[in-house]
């Protein structure tokens, strides 16, 4: 099953807003991930699990350091899914 960019965005907004209890409208492509979700060091451990549950891929801690905005995150997921296909 291949996911379009729109699917990735919709899925991400749904699970992140539920997991981190933020207004879905605040998750825009340009918004900074860390600040929008109020992520602390421990939350990234949580984030790895919910990403794996939703996209079937395991992210490494250091990969998060390169992701600033949600757009960066969507790019990363797209690349990983394409590499897996």
């Amino acid at each position: 099953m291949s996911l379009t960019r729109q699917d990735i965005e919709a899925t991400t907004i749904k699970f992140l807003s539920e997991e981190f209890e933020v207004d879905p409208s605040t998750i825009t492509p340009e918004a900074p991930m860390k600040e929008t979700l109020a992520l602390d060091s421990l939350d990234y451990v949580d984030l790895v699990v919910v990403i794996e549950q939703n996209f079937g891929m395991k992210m490494k801690g250091e990969q998060f350091m390169k992701l600033v905005t949600f757009s960066d995150f969507y790019d990363h997921i797209e690349e990983e899914l394409a590499a897996k296909a």
Partner: peptide, 13 residues
Amino acid sequence: PLSKDMSHVFKMN
């Protein structure tokens, strides 16, 4: 230790 380089994410998981 919780660290800035995120190595704890890998270790904890």
